[in-house]
């Protein structure tokens, strides 16, 4: 994963880089611009780079914003906190929102673009 973050740091501001694939096999992308937005609003996310990847590729929960599943929420608890406090309902988790689009560059294939992400106490529904 370190490799991705190194490439992102060196990439043009708006270039979308493939971070991972979601459980359905759709490629998910992140730009340095969006990562800057995420850190601007949620500075604590800087320590959750690996968890961001895990939340998308192996989420503990996925929720749809709309019937077309064009916007999905991905949840994943912090495994380090989880090990320490297994039953704590306020265990910190991260939430990632992905918008699914159909760019002609990818022959209109369903493609995920990270919109935002943040951490919070507890993983109950939004």
């Amino acid at each position: 994963m370190t490799d991705f973050w190194q490439r992102l740091a060196a990439a043009p501001f708006r270039e979308l880089l493939e971070l991972t694939s979601d459980p359905d096999g759709c490629r998910v992308y992140l730009s340095r611009e969006t990562w800057a937005h995420i850190l601007d609003g949620h500075a604590g996310m800087v320590v959750y780079q690996d968890l961001l990847h895990l939340a998308i590729s192996g989420p503990e929960r996925v929720e749809a914003e709309d019937p077309w599943r064009s916007v999905l929420y991905y949840y994943r608890r912090d495994p380090q906190e989880q090990a320490k406090r297994i039953t704590d309902p306020t265990l910190k988790c991260i939430i990632v929102i992905i918008r699914y689009i159909h760019p002609p560059e990818w022959r209109f294939a369903r493609t995920g673009v990270i919109r935002t992400a943040w951490s919070r106490r507890g993983m109950r529904r939004r």
Partner: peptide, 8 residues
């Protein structure tokens, strides 16, 4: 607001 936790 940087030293804060988020709750739903």
């Amino acid at each position: 607001v940087s030293g804060s936790d988020n709750v739903g």
